[in-house]
């Protein structure tokens, strides 16, 4: 090895993967199921779109096995917008991920919203050039996904419910444990690694920096500008909005308001202004009325 600078262009490095997540911070990533919806999202100021065949609320209603989207739909959406396009692969389904990489999507969401393909293993994300985002309900889950190569974590929440309570629970759990680890002495860090079933190296990194080694975004149940302000004040660095937008009365307007709320989340006056007269939000569900919790998928 020498210290000579490497003038070759290296793609798919971790810096490049997490770099895109960093550029999305402060923004809104919107679920879309058609090219027209993708345009609505881009017009509203979304930083990225998630190309899906069905939003989580419909996946919930329809039941059955939910899989990767049709490549033709993903390509249509890629052609419709200039912002990054993400798509979902089933947990553990590395072949779907390979297909999405071949389609040149900008981020792959290894997502509990789709039906898991492997009951024990998530995708080994390191060999891929395309970056991955994964969901997490707690810090241990987040760190296991990062150790598998995820370059962005989103708190899972409970997708398709329009109910923010689970997103708040997961975010508070992840950020609360991060705070505690920064207070832990060097011996306690090993106990944390054991308790979280997470690599000690990542626990030590958190102890030193006070934050997750990759950006922490929030997903699952966000339906209003105030929901966005809430989770960003709690510490989310950006938000995913799914059913909450296109299942509402006036998606274009709501999308615009949600983007404004993400940019000015600390300005309650502004959140109030953009929240006025948005029409009906998605109906939403009490969690006690749910059957299977999507957030329980993944390990």
């Amino acid at each position: 090895m020498t210290d000579a600078p490497d003038h070759s262009a290296r793609t798919g490095t971790f810096a490049v993967k997490r770099g895109l997540a960093d550029m999305l911070r402060g923004g809104v990533i919107m679920d879309v199921v058609t090219a027209d919806q993708a345009k609505v999202a881009e017009d509203a100021g979304a930083v990225s779109v998630m190309a899906l065949e069905r939003v989580p609320a419909d996946i919930r209603r329809d039941g059955g096995v939910a899989r990767m989207s049709d490549p033709a739909l993903i390509e249509e959406i890629q052609q419709a917008v200039t912002i990054p396009v993400m798509a979902k692969a089933r947990i553990g389904h590395f072949a779907e991920a390979q297909v999405l990489e071949a389609l040149q999507v900008d981020y792959i969401d290894e997502s509990e919203v789709l039906t898991p393909a492997d009951e024990a293993h998530h995708i080994d994300k390191w060999p891929f050039t395309v970056p991955f985002v994964c969901g997490a309900t707690n810090l241990g889950e987040a760190l296991r996904r990062i150790s598998e190569g995820a370059a962005m974590i989103r708190s899972k929440g409970e997708a398709g419910t329009g109910n923010v309570v689970e997103a708040v629970r997961h975010l508070r759990s992840i950020l609360g444990d991060i705070k505690k680890i920064t207070q832990a002495d060097s011996a306690e860090r090993y106990a944390w690694a054991k308790q979280l079933s997470a690599p000690i190296g990542l626990v030590q990194e958190i102890a030193e920096t006070g934050r997750l080694p990759v950006p922490l975004f929030c997903a699952g149940g966000l339906a209003t500008p105030a929901d966005v302000s809430l989770v960003m004040q709690l510490g989310a660095e950006a938000v995913f909005v799914g059913s909450g937008n296109f299942k509402s009365e006036d998606p274009a307007r709501r999308a615009r308001a949600i983007v404004e709320a993400a940019a000015h989340f600390e300005d309650a006056g502004h959140v109030a202004k953009v929240s006025r007269g948005l029409g009906e939000a998605m109906r939403g569900q009490e969690l006690s009325a749910l059957g299977e919790r999507l957030a329980d998928r993944g390990w």
Binding site: D6, S8, T13, T82, P84, Q104
Partner: peptide, 16 residues
């Protein structure tokens, strides 16, 4: 040219 170096799979790091 926006995104003139390509999509994310063509994003890269180097020494200039």
């Amino acid at each position: 040219l926006r995104n003139g170096y390509g999509r994310q799979n063509e994003s890269f790091e180097t020494a200039i």
